[in-house]
Amino acid sequence: MSAILGDVADLHPETCLVHAGTLRSQFGETSEALFLTQGHVYDSAEQAEARFLNKDPGFQYARFSNPTVAMLEARMAAFEGAEACR
């Protein structure tokens, strides 16, 4: 996951809290989108199985993780100067 701002180390804390970790979809929205889906599409049954076994990176089911939560985690990690957040 990449933040739209690149290196956030030089940003004011307020800017980091608002913009770090934001992912843009193919629709080019100006703020982060809210992903309200519960499930995700897979290329095959094998890929779905690998996702649920944590052998293939990506989203599986919204209760485990989703793009909205991933953006919040990336934002909090950037704000704290951490590598990751859970």
Rank of each mutant, 00 (worst) to 15 (best):
M76E: 12
L5S: 12
R51V: 02
L53Q: 11
L34C: 13
L23F: 03
L36Q: 07
L5G: 11
G28F: 06
C16L: 08
V18R: 15
N66Q: 04
P13M: 05
V41P: 03
G28Q: 12
S44Q: 12
A78V: 04
H19D: 05
G28N: 13
V41L: 09
A77T: 00
L5M: 15
L17V: 01
F27Q: 15
A84S: 15
F27T: 14
D56T: 10
P57V: 02
L72I: 03
S25D: 04
R86T: 10
F52R: 07
H40V: 12
T68W: 00
E49I: 08
R75K: 07
G58M: 02
L36F: 06
N66R: 07
L17Q: 06
G6M: 03
H12F: 07
R86F: 05
L72W: 02
A48H: 06
G28P: 05
L34P: 11
A62R: 05
R63C: 10
S31M: 12
S65V: 03
H19R: 06
A45C: 11
E29T: 10
D7T: 02
A3T: 14
L23C: 06
F79H: 04
Q38T: 11
A78T: 04
A74L: 07
E49H: 09
A78D: 13
R51W: 00
E83N: 08
Y61E: 14
R75I: 00
S2A: 14
F64I: 09
A78F: 02
H12G: 11
H19I: 00
E73I: 01
C85N: 10
V8S: 13
T30M: 14
